[in-house]
């Protein structure tokens, strides 16, 4: 299926990626090829097979409700671009 400019813009926005005007042709071309390639799945006879979400045939393990993590804020925040008073700082978010 061919992808339109609108498709590219919509997906890019959902994924929070910036797509410049001059990148649109490359995206429509390459993503179009990829989508064309995966369209092969359409022909597969899957009948009433259940979807396989995971290769492991196990159930979820549960951990006891115990606090094990100590406060390491200062260590963890060393990787943050902007922080103040223990908070991570971002441009103003309007609610």
């Amino acid at each position: 299926m061919a992808l339109t400019r609108k498709d590219i813009e919509y997906i890019a926005h959902l994924a929070r990626l910036e797509v410049h005007e001059d990148e649109i042709p490359a995206y429509t071309d390459k993503l179009g090829k990829i989508i064309g390639f995966i369209d092969a799945l359409d022909a597969a006879e899957t009948g009433d097979l259940l979807p396989m979400a995971h290769p492991l045939n196990m159930s979820q393990r549960l951990r006891p409700d115990v606090v094990t993590a100590a406060d390491q804020r200062d260590v963890y925040q060393q990787n943050a671009a902007e922080k103040e008073g223990g908070l991570y700082i971002v441009p103003r978010v309007v609610e």
Binding site: R61, L62, R63, P64, R73, Y76, Q77
Partner: peptide
């Protein structure tokens, strides 16, 4: 295993899993 106590200093109860650090994984509380 981060604490859920209310009213702590900001981000002192945000461990690696809470922060979504690269490589860490969730394990469900029983």
């Amino acid at each position: 295993g981060a604490s859920t106590a209310y009213g702590a200093e900001p981000n002192t109860q945000a461990d690696l899993v809470t922060l979504g650090y690269p490589g860490v994984l969730p394990v469900l509380n029983q």
